[in-house]
């Protein structure tokens, strides 16, 4: 089978991102409007979107955006909502070979949930670093443009009750999960176990920061045990 070049893979990644380009744009509109409401200037909002490039982290920071800025509180909340990136990065361990570590470190700045999910479900030979980069760059463009559009349209978007959109994040995750589920049926029991453990921890009053790592640990342990029993 013919190998696909890095540039071609990047282009295919950008093209594959178009579904999430739209949902990213919607979130960016809301972030731009929310940033304007929080008193952030347009260039500061653009700088944040261009360098942080994370909807969950940026929305979390806005919750604490008052003078004087509480640096530690903001960074802690940003870290907590970004911990899933550590897991996403780990899942890419076997997929980015053939490039210098420096190049991998550079382009991993564009790592996002949809890009990882799309990369992992690829069923054809591909330069996965290129694919991941093209996918991420397209979403970055969407994120920056929509931040600007949302900022400029803030007065129009003010009529939206953003509280009704608090569930929009989980909906985006559901779309990613459904994409991921195709061809990954073997992983379903581990995912279900993680979900059940997360709900049990939630109901037992466990601190929010503890739910994600413990639930994922349960799912990962199940997979490890399954692999061990197969190897025997």
């Amino acid at each position: 089978m013919t190998a696909i070049t890095l540039q071609k893979s990047a282009w295919l990644g950008a093209m594959a991102s178009r579904g999430f380009f739209v949902s990213t744009f919607l979130f960016g509109l809301l972030f731009g409007a929310a940033a304007a409401a929080a008193g952030i200037t347009h260039w500061q909002a653009l700088l944040m979107s261009a360098t942080v490039f994370s909807a969950s982290a940026q929305f979390a920071a806005l919750e604490f955006w008052v003078a004087p800025l509480p640096l530690f509180t903001i960074l802690l909340s940003v870290f907590l909502v970004s911990t899933r990136n550590i897991l996403l990065g780990m899942s890419m361990t076997h997929h980015l070979d053939g490039h210098s570590l420096g190049r991998r470190m550079l382009w991993l700045a564009l790592l996002t949930d949809p890009a990882v999910v799309s990369t992992l479900r690829l069923d054809r030979p591909m330069e996965k670093l290129g694919y991941l980069t093209g996918f991420g760059l397209a979403l970055l463009v969407s994120w920056i443009l929509s931040t600007m559009a949302g900022f400029l349209a803030a007065s129009h978007l003010a009529v939206v009750n953003t509280e009704s959109l608090r569930f929009a994040g989980p909906l985006v995750m559901a779309t990613m999960l459904m994409l991921f589920a195709r061809g990954n049926g073997r992983q379903l029991p581990a995912w279900l176990l993680s979900g059940v453990i997360a709900i049990v921890l939630l109901e037992s009053g466990a601190p929010d920061w503890m739910i994600l790592p413990l639930a994922v640990l349960a799912g990962a342990s199940w997979t490890l045990l399954r692999e061990a029993s197969r190897a025997r």
């Binding site: 899933r84 550590i86 897991l87 996403l88 990065g89 780990m90 899942s91 890419m92 361990t93 076997h94 949930d113 990882v116 999910v117 992992l120 989980p170 995750m173 559901a174 990613m176 999960l177 991921f180 589920a181 990954n184 992983q187 581990a190 995912w191 279900l192 993680s194 979900g195 059940v196 453990i197 997360a198 709900i199 939630l202 739910i211 994600l212 639930a215 994922v216 799912g219 990962a220 997979t223 490890l224 692999e227 061990a228 190897a231």
Partner: peptide, 29 residues
């Protein structure tokens, strides 16, 4: 971190289960 443990072959399926587990662990609650 993954690069440090990639020589353990049986960990690969575990690593690739992580994103799905993370998504469900956020979505379910």
């Amino acid at each position: 971190l993954g690069l440090q443990v990639r020589h353990i072959g049986s960990l690969r399926p575990v690593l690739e289960t992580l994103p799905g587990c993370a998504l469900v662990a956020i979505l379910a609650p």
